[in-house]
């Protein structure tokens, strides 16, 4: 009985000591990259690559088998689409040249295209409901730096918040900690877009300080603004889906659905921040 009591008190002591150590660790490591995380990424990233490889191999094979019957019609459809895209591309090139000439006439500087640093694959996401952080398979060794802007073909995804040697952590714009300087596409009025994952229907953002005299409508496009310190101008962000007016304060709650589908995000591009 005596032995049992001693054992029990030791367990309690370990828990107390463990708690104190962990609280100190949280305080020290909060919000910055650290040695342990970097070392872990060397072990976890190859395992992630292996699982993602198996995943795409199995998924790809199933997809191929499921679509085998419709391959001929799909091919025909794609050929037609390709022809149409070729034509659209030709027209767009014409516009580009025309735009260049007009800009030269007006002596305006040419707009830069986004300087892409590297492409990356999404290999994992934070399993908790509150945080919208995910991991990509490129890090310091590939030229990735903190605050680099992350986009995909649909629009703005987020920004890099922590860089390890071979992987990095990206905060999505829907994360409650995220704030992006944007503007309304029609009126060019500047707005602050904040992550509002825990509000409305989840995976949304909201616009701050929108008063009743702001010219904004449902369905309006939101793009990054030219006054941001990090994000280049003109990246598509999302669409306004709901506007709620509080009659007592005359402030409106505006919800924005991001263009990016975070459930299906597999590949991203990293572009240099401003």
């Amino acid at each position: 009985m005596q032995v049992y009591t001693n054992k029990k008190s030791h367990k309690g002591k370990y828990i107390v000591v463990g708690t104190i150590i962990l609280i100190i660790t949280i305080a020290i490591t909060s919000e910055k990259a650290n040695f342990a995380t970097n070392i872990t990424s060397y072990i976890t990233t190859p395992v992630y690559r292996l699982f993602n490889g198996i995943n795409s191999l199995i998924g790809g094979s199933f997809n191929y088998i499921a679509r085998i019957g419709t391959l001929e019609t799909d091919n025909e459809k794609l050929l037609k689409e390709n022809e149409k895209l070729k034509y659209d591309n030709f027209i767009l090139n014409e516009f580009k040249e025309e735009n260049k000439e007009l800009r030269n006439l007006l002596e305006m500087s040419e707009k830069d295209t986004y300087p892409v640093v590297t492409g990356a694959g999404v290999i994992g996401v934070d399993p908790s409901s509150y945080s919208k952080i995910f991991i990509i398979d490129k890090g310091k060794n590939n030229g990735v730096t903190e605050n680099m802007v992350v986009i995909n073909y649909q629009g703005l995804v987020g920004k890099v918040i922590q860089v390890n040697d071979i992987s990095s952590k990206v905060m999505a714009i829907t994360d409650e900690e995220s704030a992006v300087s944007c503007m309304l596409q029609r009126s060019k009025e500047p707005v602050i877009l904040k992550g509002a994952n825990l509000q409305d229907n989840g995976d949304v953002c909201k616009l701050d300080y929108i008063t009743t005299d702001t010219d904004i409508i449902e369905g309006e496009d939101i793009i990054t603004s030219n006054i941001s310190d990090i994000y280049p101008e003109g990246i598509p962000v999302g669409k306004v889906i709901k506007i709620q007016t509080d009659s007592s304060t005359l402030v409106r709650q505006v919800y924005v659905k991001p263009n990016v589908n975070y459930r299906r995000i597999n590949n991203v591009l990293l572009i240099k921040n401003k």
């Binding site: 976890t44 395992v47 992630y48 699982f51 993602n52 995943n55 290999i123 994992g124 996401v125 934070d126 399993p127 908790s128 409901s129 991991i135 829907t174 994952n197 825990l198 229907n201 989840g202 995976d203 949304v204 975070y262 459930r263």
Partner: peptide, 24 residues
């Protein structure tokens, strides 16, 4: 270790309106 990795790969498919189950 394997569970932690698999969980972070596949958990996004369980996301319903921003909520994911706490499998951990």
């Amino acid at each position: 270790f394997i569970f932690a990795i698999i969980n972070t790969i596949y958990i996004r498919y369980f996301n319903i309106m921003g909520i994911t189950p706490n499998i951990n």
